[in-house]
Design a protein around this nucleic acid. Structure first.
Length: 877
RNA sequence: GGGAGCUUAGCUCAGUUGGUUUAGAGCAUCUGCCUUACAAGCAGAGGGUCACAGGUUCGACUCCUGUAGCUCCCACCA
């Protein structure tokens, strides 16, 4: 009986149960077979990470796609895993050790790595556990980690392959140095931010002149100590007279040459530029061009070293402050101006990047980029939304070499081994390296202890770019069954901020090592923001805890909230009220279920006419929506899909369909209808399941008797059968009539339980009893009469047929007249418009016949409507 | 400094190659209802000169040009 079931749906009681059920029955697992494959690899979250709203969005979308594909009959795999995230993880481990009183500097590499692995085992992969709460249908048996032995081997293989192809080289270059993490980072890992800073004007004395100076402008006065030239524009007359002379660096009194190059903007500052080749990329280039000395004044940690001569050991920012009084004292400071400039920050540590000259490993990208660019441009890979094609193309066309070495311990170590003669060999391991070295240099009589492996590890992305290949062992065993079956993957769901880091490089890797793109479609999600459009961040504290959210609204509710407002590529303005809407929807489903379950069945009752009509209509509506859903899935319009399913269930199924078929209070329902309702309900749950997996599974199981191993997640999405547009049309007209009557009830304050009569002013031969029955049921109409006499009661017009509700004593004639006059005004205005078009000869002559016909139809309809209104008005008056 | 995108109801967004009753949805708002599944609900209502200015066209939310505002990406101006 209804009363026994709680009126509120409780997701907590349901969700864990079904996730366990799916796991117990191994329903997420996939093995290659004869069915078509649908595969997605998760963008591996950092092993250090905890679930945030961005993951929620990203993984909800993946789960919807995967569950949809599974129910469409694909052999579906969603491969989960984590990324070792070398800088972030190493920083976490270093901090963790510090808390235990252990300093990384006191540890050997092996000791540190032992702690790091321990840490990883203990704290790593929290996200993957949290994703289960969300309902993620990942194939957990396949969980991978980018530093697993097999994946690491693939990384080494790829490095060696690139090295042998001549695409990896080692060299001294200006790199982005992170003084906190003590490592180089790639260009992509530098984030430029605008800062309020100062522009310092400093004058340099001309050597041999008693009162001649050149004033330069700089934002970094501390680097004066590393200056090795001053540069001016060759055509700048102000400075022409100093040609051939030297300037004296303030404070350290070092003479430096004056050079002239067109690089300098004459209009900026004073038109004179100090050159510090060791600490600025542009200065470095000029230094190369003019063969300048390079004085490195910084230690790796950003403090000044002995080369600076003064302020040795002082941090660069402290030094910037400290040098000002020194310049003042020496009479070299001219003025200080406010200035806004862009400063590069390390993506991982948020430390100001220091350009630094150092020996690093690089990967040449041009030849890898070419086919990868083509793959996106020619449609082998589709981007959703498409606009990211432009961004991608621009980067690919201007690609630079990739600095792949990092001065860290946590990561894949560079497989290069140095020999006593300062040469090196590249090999899979120490033994192989020794063999190669011996062959190359037999005269050296090398032993294992002569070889020393490079200390650096590789950029994290150097393993991530292989992810779609390496999770299926496609690098080491390119012909294996799994890679052949699951690769290329079907779709990649990711955020646009890693399009260069990851997406572009995966495409290159896929083409380079497997000759095929890694995925067919890339769906870029937006950024999750709060309602004030601010990015969610820890500092702002505007990011809700996803786990708490799921406890509050249910995973289904939160999924609903995430999905409902996240068209591809658009930012998602997260608002808890969306989750509330999701929870309310769950509750609606729950109560619809309670209603249906509470009915008593009777096999002896005939199916009423209104019910028969409703069932036919509902089936058609479902088909109509199914067709739209399928189309939307192709275009990754998931929020649209959820919305139309939401409306199908709430408006059509609950508010309309169930209200029609509902038996009178405490009366039984006929068995035929009941069976049909349960079938329809079941279908709706199947359609909704990819979006809200838990409640749909719960209701699907309770609606009908099921085997203990059956699951909605393996139920096929219904096939689309024929749609009857005429029926759908007539039904929606019927709903309009219902609305008219309800409005009249509302206006006249007539309770639903008070039965009404309905008069229809048309020929009885056009009667449609099946629809009249529906109107009667929903509006509590006790009698429908066809008439052609004077209008009696409150009237309305629908599809140019007049209806009225006879209501003696409740009619306000002047009110009725006013309403009709308004209608008339609208209809006449409308007709005016149509006539204006039709009287335009050029329209009639040029527009397609079909468009003109539509206008003619509009005209006759409007005229008929006007006629009816006028007639009615005259009767009333 | 380049490039891309956006601007439609209070908010968030749809609007397919220009034409289907002088623009649609969800939420929010307002009105009336504790009606026998659901007040996390039911029924109904109001709300937009489609950023602005031109142009093309028989016809423009839709195409073109310009203007303004916002967002993102790229770039070594000290």
């Amino acid at each position: 009986m209804v009363n026994e079931i709680n009126t509120k749906y409780d997701p907590m009681a349901v969700e864990d149960k079904w996730y366990d059920f799916w796991m117990r029955n191994n329903m997420f697992h996939s093995e290659p077979d004869s069915r078509p494959a649908y595969s997605i690899v998760i963008p591996p979250p950092n092993v250090t990470g905890v679930l945030h709203m961005g993951h929620m969005l990203n993984n909800t979308i993946q789960d919807v796609l995967v569950r949809n594909a599974r129910m469409k009959g694909f052999n579906t795999v969603w491969v989960p895993g984590t990324d070792h995230a070398s800088i972030a993880t190493e920083a976490k481990v270093v901090n963790y050790l510090k808390e235990q009183g252990i300093d990384k500097k006191d540890l050997s590499r092996d000791e540190f790595l032992k702690y790091a692995w321990e840490w990883k085992e203990k704290y790593g992969g929290i996200i993957l556990k949290q994703l289960r709460k969300l309902g993620a249908s990942c194939d957990w048996e396949r969980t991978k980690f980018t530093m697993d032995a097999d994946l690491s081997e693939a990384v080494t293989d790829v490095f060696i392959d690139l090295y042998n192809k001549g695409l990896i080289y080692r060299g001294v270059r200006m790199v982005n140095w992170d003084p906190k993490a003590l490592t180089a980072v790639s260009d992509e890992e530098v984030i430029y931010k605008e800062l309020q800073s100062k522009l310092y004007y400093v004058r340099y004395k001309i050597e041999g002149e008693c009162d001649e100076f050149i004033t330069i402008a700089t934002t970094r006065p501390e680097t004066i100590l590393g200056d090795t030239a001053i540069c001016m524009h060759p055509d700048d007359e102000r400075y022409a007279k100093y040609k051939g002379k030297r300037a004296i660096v303030p404070i350290v009194n070092r003479p430096i040459p004056l050079i002239y190059d067109e690089y300098v903007e004459r209009e900026f500052g004073t038109g004179a530029l100090k050159i510090t080749p060791a600490h600025d990329i542009n200065d470095y280039n000029l230094g190369n061009k003019y063969n300048l000395n390079s004085i490195n004044i910084f230690n790796d940690n950003g403090t000044l070293n002995e080369n600076a001569k003064v302020l040795v050991g002082v941090d660069r920012f402290k030094a910037r402050e400290a040098i000002i009084p020194m310049l003042e004292e020496s009479g070299n400071l001219v003025k200080i101006e406010d200035y806004t400039n862009k400063v590069g920050f390390s993506e991982r540590t948020n430390e100001v990047i220091e350009p630094k000259l150092s020996m690093q490993w690089f990967c040449k990208m041009e030849s890898l980029a070419k086919p990868a660019l083509a793959a996106v441009m020619n449609g082998d890979i589709n981007f959703y939304p498409e606009k990211f094609k432009n961004t991608y193309a621009h980067w690919m066309e201007n690609i630079k070499d990739w600095c792949i070495s990092r001065q860290l311990w946590w990561g894949h170590r560079i497989p290069a081994y140095y020999l006593p003669n300062r040469k090196f060999v590249v090999a899979r391991n120490a033994d192989e390296a020794l063999n190669i070295a011996r062959q190359k240099f037999p005269e050296l009589n090398l032993t294992a202890s002569d070889l020393k492996q490079d200390e650096d590890v590789m950029d994290t992305w150097f393993s991530s770019w292989l992810w779609p290949l390496s999770v299926f062992d496609g690098i080491r065993n390119p012909d294996n069954k799994e890679i052949q079956y699951y690769y290329p993957t079907s779709a990649l769901i990711t955020a646009p901020d890693i399009i260069f880091f990851w997406v572009a490089r995966m495409i290159m890797a896929g083409l380079e090592w497997h000759g095929q793109v890694p995925f067919k479609d890339v769906y870029f999600t937006g950024t999750v923001r709060d309602k004030l459009h601010r990015k969610m961040s820890k500092q702002l504290g505007n990011s809700p805890d996803p786990i708490l959210l799921m406890e509050q609204y249910g995973a289904d509710g939160v999924r609903f909230g995430m999905l409902l407002s996240s068209p591809a590529g658009n930012d998602l303005l997260f608002d808890e009220s969306l989750c509330e809407q999701g929870r309310n929807f769950s509750n609606k489903l729950w109560n619809a279920f309670r209603l249906v379950k509470g009915w008593e069945k009777d096999t002896n009752i005939e199916q009423p006419l209104h019910t028969k009509t409703a069932v036919k209509w509902m089936k058609n509506r479902i088909n109509e929506v199914l067709a739209e859903v399928e189309e939307n899935f192709k275009r990754y319009r998931l929020s649209e899909n959820l919305m139309i399913i939401y409306k199908l269930i709430w408006d059509d199924f609950c508010s309309c369909f169930l209200e029609i078929v509902k038996p009178a209070y405490l009366k039984p329902i006929d068995q035929k209808t009941y069976t049909e309702i349960v079938d329809i309900f079941e279908n709706l749950m199947v359609i909704l399941h990819p979006f809200m997996p838990f409640i749909t599974e719960e209701l699907w199981h309770t609606l009908k008797e099921r085997n203990s191993e059956e699951s909605i997640m393996l139920a096929p999405i219904p096939e689309i059968s024929d749609i009857d547009p005429k029926l759908l049309n007539e039904f929606s007209e019927t709903r309009k009539i219902i609305e008219h009557i309800r409005r009249i009830r509302n206006e006249k304050n007539i309770a639903q339980k008070h039965p009404l009569k309905l008069f229809i002013y048309t020929n009885p031969s056009s009667e449609k009893p099946e629809y009249n029955a529906v109107v009667a049921k929903l509006c509590n109409i006790e009698n429908i009469e066809y008439r052609n006499d004077n209008i009696d009661g409150v009237s309305f017009i629908e599809n140019n047929i007049q209806y009225s509700i006879p209501l003696t004593g409740l009619i306000d004639t002047s009110e009725e007249i006013k309403k009709l006059e308004n209608d008339l005004k609208y209809a006449e205005g409308f007709l005016q418009n149509v006539l204006k078009k039709l009287s335009n000869e050029r329209f009639v002559n040029n527009a397609p016949q079909q468009v003109v016909d539509v206008e003619r139809k509009k005209q006759s309809d409007a005229e008929e409507k006007i006629r009816i209104i006028k007639e009615q008005l005259s009767k009333l008056k």
